[in-house]
């Protein structure tokens, strides 16, 4: 829960990706409470392990200060 809120409100995208991973781990724990341990492990293996890494790689391909520059148009980099 807290993690998912942090995903949305965080301005720095890499931080958001980190909290996304944490959220996905906790979602996996919810699967475990539903007695589906295979789905839980797959959730961690694929979603928590792989997808945020892909996101972080993608974020690095884009401009980092994309949020800051919206505030100050003449900003460098």
């Amino acid at each position: 829960m807290i993690g998912s809120i942090l995903v949305v409100i965080n301005k720095r995208l890499v931080r958001a990706a980190f909290w996304l991973a944490m959220t996905l781990v906790t979602i996996g724990a919810i699967y475990l409470l539903f007695l589906s341990e295979f789905v839980f492990l797959i959730q961690i293996l694929v979603y928590a392990g792989a997808v945020p890494v892909l996101f972080v790689f993608g974020i690095m391909l884009t401009r980092r200060k994309i949020m800051d520059e919206a505030a100050e148009p003449e900003g460098g980099t």
Binding site: V51, G58, M60, L61, R64
Partner: peptide
């Protein structure tokens, strides 16, 4: 922490597919 063209993106992409 700049915009950085680095070439591992393709590997991450294929990795996700392969993982599934």
């Amino acid at each position: 922490q700049i915009q950085f063209h680095f070439q591992y993106y393709m590997f991450a992409l294929i990795f996700v597919i392969f993982d599934v």
